[in-house]
Design a protein around this nucleic acid. Structure first.
Lengths: 126, 126
DNA sequence: TTAAAAATGATAATGATTATTATTATCAAT
DNA sequence: ATTGATAATAATAATCATTATCATTTTTAA
């Protein structure tokens, strides 16, 4: 995989944003910094970054797909009202793969744990 | 919500199938039993059944959406090779919502835990 | 049984993602 | 620095899953 300015920028913007944007949202964020960039390039590079492990996909509730740059193990909480994706610390559930292995024999390459509910913002606004 | 033959059949077929089909696959399975049924009806009823809690959505790896009739709490293992969805027993990780609450204060309405890896079939076929 | 409400089938519309294609950027080897 | 091979890009068309529309049919409750 060769270097490209577009891919670097996409990863940078993802790293500087804690919002877990969708491909479309990311396109919006990147465009002011590189107006000529194409939406297809955003999709293509997100797929490449996911493939090489630098970025993770998160499936939203409404079928939307969000992207998260990989730092350390953590989980997610998605608000059923505003659809925002929040981080949940790893210590909520540790070593799930070990438990899986010992109970079922299956070996997991990765694990996704996602909670759904009302975030505190949405609870208060009702 | 009124009764409908189509909805009853959709739920029956889902209950008798451990395969976690997609909407499209379910349409294929239902059509021989009721040739006049429409794909839109399958989608419409799956959404209604999800809304009323009789059926659960599972996000596949490739963006596909699978459906699972709700019986008791359990999790999933998706094969990265054949994309099949397997059930994982609840005792792999119990009471995650309680842990979430005590560590973050967030209250989860539902929890989805999904492992990804090679299923034993695909491991053997290599 | 009959009218109102809900559900259906058929199909068009939508929207997210991927494929295509001509052009441009990258990079190792001259 | 220049070249050639390859990979990446922008723009846009194509694809495919899902949803909306609407005329017709079923269901339900009075």
């Amino acid at each position: 995989m060769n270097y490209s300015k577009q891919r670097e920028l996409i990863l940078d913007v993802l790293r500087q944003n804690p919002v877990h944007p969708t491909a479309d949202k990311l396109y919006e964020l990147v465009r002011p910094l590189m107006p000529s960039i194409s939406l297809a390039t955003v999709y293509r590079n997100l797929n490449l970054l996911v493939e090489c492990g630098a970025v993770r996909k998160i499936s939203g509730l409404d079928g939307s797909v969000h992207y998260d740059h990989c730092v350390e193990k953590h989980y997610h909480f998605i608000c059923t009202c505003c659809n925002k994706v929040y981080d949940v610390p790893y210590n909520v559930a540790q070593d799930l793969e070990l438990k899986l292995k010992s109970l079922t024999g299956l070996e997991a390459q990765s694990t996704e744990l996602t909670f759904k509910g009302l975030c505190s913002d949405c609870q208060n606004s009702n």
